[in-house]
Nucleic acid binder design. Structure first.
Lengths: 329, 329
DNA sequence: GGTCGCTCTGTAAACGATTACAAGAACGAT
DNA sequence: ATCGTTCTTGTAATCGTTTACAGAGCGACC
């Protein structure tokens, strides 16, 4: 009833299990042996049990990418990049969603230990000591796509949000805008915090005062609409808005339209992430490219390198941003 | 150096491995035993090896969802729905990308056998005999979110594309449009074929002639733009377009704008899938809701039920569409 | 007090693969 | 003919769990 095991194949072929295993793993064997085993395998439709295999050899040839929200198109970009690198290296990529809570992430990292995958790329929204501890204790390599303290001693690849903010502000200023508002995501998240600080610094560098700032409850379209409405009600005097990601920007865009404000004529709008959505929305959104594809690629490479050599000193890579100018500014 | 095993815990606690296992699995044991084991586990930071565990118990408590393209927002909806159901049942969900080729799907299904997961939901773009065969031979349950022949005898959940097309056409007709064009995806895919047929039938039912039809090379935004351009160049005489999915519709929307045509005044536009993108784009897109969330949910339920009882007769569920009317019509 | 029954714990056999080791075969050289 | 080398194959140990089975302890009942 149940699927054949290697023992069944051995019996059918009239050889030992060791020989079957050898043939299957391309170890030296005679023509005839190969032939007999191949035939028995084909006949029985034998497929090796990867659990047993990985128990013995200690590797699963699976890598995991954990992201908070698959609905965020920036993760799609990252995912594609990671997938490309790891599959070229002979691994299978599996993606899991963690949700916005840090406890889920900790549970994931803990559970990852021993068995599910040979490594993990995680892009956490919020970072706390528990998470860092669980990463350090994890016995499979973990690389963080995001910002964790250097003293944590883990491989990281992160974006340069402040520089990205500077690019956005500079661009708006060059377009003649001076009254710049800020639509942030939750400030208690890693990107939220970084972007708030980056925004403040960038304005200061241009000797500008922030006109208004609101915080959305999430980095989502729906939260962007709600927060966008707040922005419009509270502080109507801006001529440009920078949003902490593209989803928020697009949410705001809808509220601007509802309020009868034209983009970019009345309000110029800059998003962040330069995700597919920036291209797809209308008008196409000027967006700060924080290098999500490159971050994904580098993170994957870091992971593979660490799997290769667990003793190498941790690297911290910072990917530089660029600006994709489109019609919204 | 390496992580502690159950034997190390047993040694540290001064008990047998069986007792440790029992405590960990909540089988009856004395207060004191539980206490000693718990302590040793905490001390050593022991985490059971899930490979060994699943080798023994024959289950991994992982389920896989395989989709062609994570960039397509319709899969995001489906993913969320599947995730909700399976995690409520105590499984972890992993997502893998197959790419557009059927050979990748076959390889995935074959490889899934024995070990990686306890079940699979697959949403194939293209179906051939090899794929069906691999599904039938797979020794973990597979449910297909899509259309496969009934004689294949596999659990399926599919959308009712023809009915969806009928809704779209009906709606456009009620809005006074008669010159309806069709922007399809690749016709050699399962949804492409179904939608082409549905479109033809729906027009016939209203005694209308198709004004124009083009095929995009993919169900993507970029392909939608290219095909949208063809549509505009070749056949300018339409007052409405139905697109085979939202990404194509949005791609076309950009080309319409570039050509100076207003949506919905000059051209009414209907998408399909009612994904998040339909809400996010501008103007918001009227879209046929093919029930992706419900399909995901039902597919996950089917999978769980079959894991429970492998002998039940295969079900074929058809989810009915509805229309989400927005400003594009 | 002896026997029964019950509960708890330990020993050891799985699960299905890989692989170290040893034994046997083949073959050429002396 | 004997020996040594090389190549192939088989036997059995192993990976880290779970769990069937048996033994030990102990209170209760006749």
């Amino acid at each position: 009833m149940s699927r054949p095991t290697i023992a069944a194949v051995a019996r059918a072929a009239g050889v030992s299990v060791a020989s079957v295993s050898r043939v299957l793993n391309d170890l030296p064997a005679t023509e005839e042996m190969v032939e007999r085993v191949r035939q028995a395998v084909a006949e029985l439709g034998y497929v090796p049990d990867s659990r047993a295999r990985s128990l013995k050899v200690g590797r699963t040839f699976q890598l995991t990418l954990a992201v908070a929200d698959v609905g965020n198109p920036v993760y799609v970009t990252m995912m594609r990049a990671v997938e490309e690198v790891v599959s070229a290296a002979g691994y299978r990529l599996v993606v899991t969603m963690t949700g916005p809570d840090v406890v889920d992430e900790v549970a994931l990292v803990r559970g990852m230990a021993r068995g599910y995958a040979d490594g993990l790329v995680i892009s956490p929204l919020r970072v706390d000591d528990d998470l860092i501890k669980s990463i350090q204790e994890c016995d499979v390599p973990v690389v963080v796509a995001g910002n964790v303290p250097a003293r944590a001693g883990v491989d990281t690849v992160r974006a340069n949000s402040p520089k990205g903010m500077a690019l956005a502000v500079e661009h708006l200023v060059s377009r003649g805008r001076r009254r710049i508002a800020f639509l942030n995501g939750p400030a208690d998240t890693v990107p939220g915090e970084a972007r708030a600080k980056g925004f403040a610094d960038a304005l200061r560098a241009h000797k500008l005062q922030p006109v208004a700032a609101v915080e959305a409850t999430d980095f989502t379209f729906a939260a962007g609409r709600v927060a966008g409405r707040q922005l419009l009600e509270g502080h109507p005097g801006f001529d440009a808005v920078i949003a902490a990601n593209d989803l928020l920007a697009v949410g705001l865009m809808h509220e601007l339209a509802a309020a009868g404000l034209a983009v970019p004529d009345d309000v110029a709008l800059v998003g962040m992430d330069d995700s597919e959505l920036a291209e797809q929305c209308f008008p196409p959104l000027t967006s700060v490219n924080l290098g999500s594809a490159e971050r994904g690629r580098r993170a994957a490479e870091l992971l593979l390198a660490r799997i290769e050599d667990g003793e190498r000193s941790p690297r911290r890579i910072i990917v530089q941003p660029s600006l994709s100018v489109r019609r919204s500014t």
